[in-house]
Nucleic acid binder design. Structure first.
Lengths: 359, 359
DNA sequence: GTGAAAGCGCTAACAG
DNA sequence: CTGTTAGCGCTTTCAC
């Protein structure tokens, strides 16, 4: 009883067949007599044999691994994307290699470079790379991009126009006619999409919109935004993402404003934190999980040899969750209530306060 | 110009040397003449050659990959652990395969089983597996466990006794003499440690402690806890983790209690969300990042052939961050202020509300 | 349906 | 220091 992990040769000897037959029994069971196959599996099990994915990968190139590249794993935005992607991958026997760029383009490229030889395909979730860099990668491995529309590179996107309509409709329904958009990073494709959609949709509905920013897509960015908003108020605000919305509200409240009585705020992404704040944040949810799983499905199709240009990709529908941060527009503009209780302590110096969001 | 990825043979031919020399030039540069090495690297670069990690792994078994197994990637608790681990791994040229059990023991075992053949070692962060199952894995690959003390299995742990002392000292300093501990999952090793430490430390300081629970380590669990706490109040509460603390406070406030005026609450882990709530949560921070990096360092040492029993592992120090959820003990017990404004909407039905925490 | 034999790309003795 | 020669464990023609 050797203590080395058994190989097909060990199984072959024990089963009295050729190694190639053992190989087939595992990789192409249909090409083997059912009885021999069963027998082989039995003796293999008895020996504790398990196929070695590395050895298999060498001649075939099939590593059964795909990479999911994120800009920052610690961003709640990715949670559902990751889940969706991993589930879809696991279902097909694929392992997902999660890579984390930590918000650095350099690291992103490095980790992708390192992943390329080991994976069969790549999903890029909110990459910071340039279009040309992305195309470069796409040349080396099948690739799907999430939430970014690059010509000639297959992608899956949420319906950004719809998400903006939902936010605006919600606010208009509450009587708001003036909206401020808290802009996210200029580099974020989604940010540009949202603002464009917002402006054109607002125009159709006699709603005034204004844009401020850009701000980093973090709670800290939101606080900044509140400082500037103070002098240019509107009854309603749409923030690039939830973290921005949260930071914004916290600072606003410290100024004596009431949310939603004085100001209504809508965020995007519907990260879980929206339900842990007071008030909870009204948020438009992209179908994150579906984006993740669909990206992987398409990627596996690509790997399987599907043609990359299977018609225009569809935009996945979004949904608004109405919560406590939005309410009826104030009937007339009034001064914010003065601060009665001391403003909540803000621990600006405590670490871990940053928590950027991409997309 | 072939469009296949070049191999050492292509490089060898182009450079006029033997393939093995090319191999050496990359894997053991010291065993090759500096000039030839330089020449080889140059022609390799010209051809666009890159070593194939898969092919290298086959004869050597060195995949340059380690696995980091988590119970739930979407739990903020892991953020810093992941960062610490990945950084330490990357520094040594290792790629980290993040596995996510999604809170299921079955999935955890499956994903570990699948990872084993591809990785050189494994870090288990707050596993749900039994000691014996863990030992089983440890037999197959070098293994380090985070925050769990298993005999004969190397591990790195935070100083749980210290963390509890910090929480108690903080509360006692504010005048509290009665503490309720909101218990986490029975299965969580850390939970048991904390309660034990709490009881013995409180005994030395004439502080009364009581334990309630167990509760799931989520915001929802915290709400539950608040229901029960309502009828058995103390001026101070220590929660198993931050999410529990957050859910607890939110419900408490909806009952008309004021935090920290009526009740002071301390959490554990110092996840970023503690700074997004009102009040912000006072929390004891384990050195998560260090735990992650130290786990990886030790693991790589193990892989490198270090003996697993290098003395007793030390317990890493923790630190308390005082924030708005704790304050001076009320001078005398008083009724909670009645609810003047409607309790904040709680969107119990909205998805994504669960967000368990392990540790 | 099954066996024999030739690799996949790289490393590792062993000579020279 | 460098070339020769076997493999690592599995897949895959090509015969039988």
């Amino acid at each position: 009883m050797s203590d080395k992990t058994p190989t097909i040769y060990d199984v072959a000897r024990a089963a009295g067949v050729a190694p190639s037959t053992v190989s087939r029994a595992f990789s192409r069971p249909d090409r083997v007599n059912v009885d021999t196959a069963a027998m082989i599996r039995a003796t293999a099990a008895a020996l504790g044999y398990r196929t070695n994915p590395l050895a298999r990968a060498l001649p075939t190139g099939q590593t059964s691994m795909i990479a999911l590249a994120t800009a920052d794993i610690t961003n709640p935005y990715y949670f559902e994307i990751i889940r969706g992607a991993q589930d879809a991958a696991a279902e097909r026997g694929y392992t997902t290699l999660l890579s984390d760029a930590q918000e650095s383009v350099t690291r992103e490229r490095e980790s992708i470079e390192r992943a390329i030889p080991t994976v069969e395909g790549i999903v890029l979730a909110s990459t910071r790379m340039s279009d040309s860099a992305i195309r470069m990668v796409a040349k080396q491995r099948p690739l799907i991009v999430i939430n970014r529309d690059i010509t000639d590179v297959p992608h899956v996107v949420a319906d950004h126009a719809m998400s903006v309509r939902q936010a605006v409709d919600h606010l208009v329904g509450l009587g708001h006619r003036h909206i401020t958009y808290l802009s996210g990073p200029d580099a974020a494709w989604v940010n540009a999409m949202r603002w464009r959609a917002l402006r054109s949709y607002a125009a159709e509905h006699e709603v005034q919109v204004r844009r401020v920013g850009p701000y980093p897509p973090t709670a800290t960015g939101g606080r900044q935004a509140a400082e500037e908003f103070r002098d240019h108020r509107t009854s309603a605000v749409i923030a690039y993402n939830d973290l921005l919305a949260i930071g914004f509200i916290r600072r606003l409240v410290s100024f004596g404003a009431r949310v939603p009585q004085d100001v209504s705020v809508v965020g995007f992404d519907n990260i879980f934190v929206t339900q842990l704040t007071s008030p909870e944040i009204t948020s438009v949810a992209p179908p994150l999980r579906t984006l993740g799983s669909m990206a992987v499905h398409n990627l596996l199709a690509l790997i399987g040899g599907a043609s990359p240009t299977t018609g225009r990709p569809l935009a996945l529908p979004t949904r608004l969750y109405a919560r406590g941060s939005t309410g009826a527009a104030p009937t007339r503009r009034r001064a914010w209530r003065s601060v009665t209780s001391p403003a909540p302590r803000e621990s600006a110096t405590t670490p871990g306060n940053r928590l950027p969001s991409p997309d």
